[in-house]
Amino acid sequence: MSHDPRLILLDPRDNVLVARQRLAAGETIATGAGSGTTDTAIALAHKVARSAIAAGDKILKYGAPIGVATQAVAAGAHVHVHNMRSDYTPTHHLEDERKAGAAS
């Protein structure tokens, strides 16, 4: 099964695809592992779940782990800092700091 030509599969082990162009919210897309629906507008070069990803699962891109899902992600959904914690960059700390500020 092939994936939508507007998406790139960088490595066959990946559980995310990369957008080659902007995608509108609510689009049904072929992921190569079935179909999925975009949950929001997807920006150029952003990640889309190739299949359902459970909270705690590693996010694989380039055939390597790049982070961990912080919540369940449906096939076709946007994968970014709102639902994953990066293994390399501290972007997730912004939300941690917001929560800590609210608790003070």
Rank of each mutant, 00 (worst) to 15 (best):
M1K: 11
H3N: 15
H3T: 09
H3Y: 10
H3D: 12
H3K: 11
D4H: 05
P5K: 12
P5Q: 07
R6I: 01
R6P: 02
R6T: 05
L10Q: 13
L10G: 14
L10H: 13
D11L: 12
P12E: 08
N15K: 11
N15Q: 11
V16Y: 09
L17D: 02
L17K: 07
A19L: 14
R20H: 14
Q21H: 07
Q21P: 03
L23S: 02
A24C: 01
A24N: 13
A25Q: 12
A25G: 07
G26H: 02
E27P: 00
E27D: 00
E27T: 01
I29S: 00
I29H: 00
A30E: 14
T31P: 06
G32V: 07
G32L: 07
A33G: 05
G34Q: 06
G34C: 13
S35F: 08
G36E: 04
T37K: 05
T37A: 06
T38L: 04
T38E: 08
D39L: 09
D39T: 04
D39P: 03
T40C: 11
T40K: 14
A41G: 12
A41S: 02
I42P: 09
A43I: 05
A43E: 13
L44P: 10
L44M: 12
A45M: 08
A45P: 01
A45Q: 10
H46S: 10
H46P: 01
H46D: 07
K47R: 06
K47I: 00
K47L: 04
A49N: 00
A49Q: 03
A49C: 05
S51C: 14
A52L: 10
A54Y: 12
A55G: 11
A55S: 11
A55P: 04
K58W: 06
L60K: 03
L60W: 11
K61V: 10
K61H: 15
Y62V: 03
Y62S: 08
G63N: 12
G63H: 13
A64W: 09
P65W: 03
I66V: 06
I66P: 02
I66M: 01
I66A: 00
G67D: 05
V68G: 03
A69E: 02
A69N: 00
T70F: 07
T70I: 13
T70A: 11
V73I: 15
A74C: 02
A74Y: 03
A75K: 00
A75C: 01
A75G: 04
G76T: 02
G76N: 01
A77N: 07
H78D: 05
H78N: 06
H80K: 09
H80F: 12
V81A: 10
N83K: 05
N83L: 08
R85H: 07
S86E: 07
S86N: 11
S86H: 13
D87M: 12
Y88K: 07
T89P: 06
H92F: 15
H92D: 11
H92T: 05
H93F: 15
H93G: 09
H93R: 15
E95R: 15
D96I: 15
E97F: 15
E97S: 15
R98I: 14
K99M: 15
G101A: 13
A102F: 13
A102N: 07
A102G: 04
A103I: 07
